[in-house]
Design a protein around this nucleic acid. Structure first.
Lengths: 217, 217
DNA sequence: GGAATTATTTGCGGAATGGTACAAAAAAGT
DNA sequence: ACTTTTTTGTACCATTCCGCAAATAATTCC
């Protein structure tokens, strides 16, 4: 230890990657993976059918720890949803940004979406937004705001794709990026719903293919 | 009264509109309207968040009567869903069958759909299939079968519309009715979801209009 | 080593849950 | 009038639910 402890002590940055020597008893869980487990449960069963006991068992945290870490059930649900959206965005953003021809790009996007919707050990979990968040959105303004923002974000991302494709001459000048984007979102929604009802991937891919053909005609 | 009461006494048909003098204490409720109330609740809150107490209060039947009339909670849910589908089908079938030009027909269909999705005293209730039944469908094969049948029915009805329109020359020969139908269903799904998140009717109508333009181009 | 801090563990408590048992009530059959 | 049949109303049961209080444990700071 060369460093003198006086004056020159580096101000420990907030949220530094190196844990800043927390003060009390160390946590017995990793918040990130615990939140992931909670997300899995909420995706599987929705808000009401997921009990704190279930969450406790899945995360390995007992209820008071859960409560201390994430707040009450609703807060945990919201944090799970935020996590879901962050993950989904992370999985999509590169594809939305890349330079493939429009059809290929759409294919990639839908393939990633299907991966998300069809994943799950005990059956396809569908899309968090479509399956549970939208339902809660009617009576919970905070969730509603997230859901609406999600719709808007997806619509805008698709619209940017179509606009870009039109500028590159891949689409006719008459194509309306906004309208096409809403159809592209609608296709996302329909495969999310159908996936949850165990429609096989092949059929979902056929729907995607048909939709792309119509949109990029 | 000309008719003689002997020999010609009409065999009281099962389920005849005239109640065939039931044997015991008469029911204090009307099964049809009770089921309607139950449906309202399930649409609003989903399966898990709707308690038997809620259902009992809404229908005016106490729990044992509910149980006797409709079975347990799951059976009541399924019967409510059947009722929902019957109602929705009844509201749609004429429009699917009529002879308006394709665009007008689609407009009518979506207008009726929006009426259904946006109705509700305490906020838009969305579509039963999309909001709750699809979620339950993963782990309940009976519900799943109903949901899948619903998808199929809607797809087929739309496909028939498009096929008919193509034969009448309203659509180009190259149009693929099946694919267009899936897009039309996707549009139904996207407005159902967005309606539940309180997206205003105007915006939903704009989505519908854009979708119709693309599909009937 | 002791104080302070933070998490964990255990377990409680009141409410709500789905479902049912049982007696009273209201009708028809005899 | 009396029995039979069906539904209603009340009450109850065992379980699960969410949230919290209090005691214990593990770590850092001084």
């Amino acid at each position: 230890m060369v460093q003198k402890s006086k004056k020159a002590s580096p101000p420990p940055r907030i949220d530094s990657p190196v844990e800043p020597k927390r003060r009390g008893r160390p946590r017995a869980y990793q918040p990130d993976i615990a939140l992931g487990k909670a997300l899995d449960l909420f995706r599987k069963d929705g808000f009401a059918a997921t009990s704190l006991d279930d969450l406790s068992a899945a995360t390995g945290m007992n209820r008071p720890s859960l409560y201390g870490a994430f707040g009450d059930k609703r807060e945990l649900y919201i944090k799970s949803y935020q996590r879901y959206r962050d993950d989904a965005r992370a999985a999509m953003v590169d594809i939305f940004r890349n330079e493939l021809p429009i059809k290929k790009r759409l294919e990639c996007i839908y393939a990633v979406a299907l991966d998300i919707y069809l994943s799950g050990d005990s059956g396809p979990r569908g899309c968090f937004t479509v399956m549970t968040a939208a339902s809660e959105a009617v009576f919970d303004s905070e969730i509603r705001a997230m859901v609406l923002e999600g719709f808007s974000e997806l619509d805008k991302a698709f619209a940017a794709c179509f606009r870009h494709a039109r500028e590159k001459g891949e689409l006719p000048e008459s194509a309306d990026p906004t309208m096409l984007a809403q159809l592209a979102s609608a296709t996302i929604h329909t495969i999310a719903i159908r996936a949850r009802a165990r429609v096989p991937r092949k059929e979902l891919e056929a729907i995607v293919k048909g939709a792309i053909d119509v949109m990029c005609r």
